[in-house]
């Protein structure tokens, strides 16, 4: 079983968002992905039974874009492969590039607790920046 990641839910009138801090950028990106899937279904009930390799390209010098593309790619894998993802390991992180291996299992109503479907990760009030203690991220999702 995966662990539920540490994050705070952000108040937003019609939708839901997450805020978190992590020691480095890679961990911040991994943890944001975990938080997004935890909003859909508690991650401590999801197992890594299958792995998928993902590669994401963003615009140069545009970290918000890279973050949105990363989360969008995972939502695409979730819907097209019918997988609830729970593990996220970034293997390469460079300017405008993320390569990662992500893992999860098919959604199973008898074991998983469905919460809400996430339509997309938005740029709305998006924040990804270096702070004293590491990296801070805020993303609002359309639900």
């Amino acid at each position: 079983m995966a662990e539920r990641p540490a994050y705070t839910e952000v108040e937003h009138t019609a939708d839901v968002g997450v805020e978190l801090v992590a020691p480095d950028l890679g961990t911040a990106l991994e943890r944001t992905a975990a938080a997004m899937f935890d909003l859909m279904s508690d991650l401590d009930r999801v197992e890594e039974r299958r792995r998928v390799a993902v590669a994401v390209r963003g615009r140069d010098g545009d970290l918000p874009n890279l973050l949105v593309r990363w989360l969008s790619e995972l939502l695409f894998v979730h819907e097209s492969e019918h997988l609830l993802l729970c593990t996220f390991a970034i293997t390469r992180l460079e300017e405008g590039v993320i390569e990662a291996t992500v893992g999860g299992e098919p959604f199973d109503r008898s074991r998983h607790d469905p919460k809400v479907e996430i339509k997309a990760a938005t740029y709305h009030e998006l924040r990804i920046e270096e702070v004293g203690s590491g990296w801070a991220v805020r993303v609002i999702f359309d639900t």
Partner: peptide, 8 residues
């Protein structure tokens, strides 16, 4: 139209 956020 909503008055309470989903979290609230």
């Amino acid at each position: 139209g909503r008055v309470l956020s989903r979290s609230k």
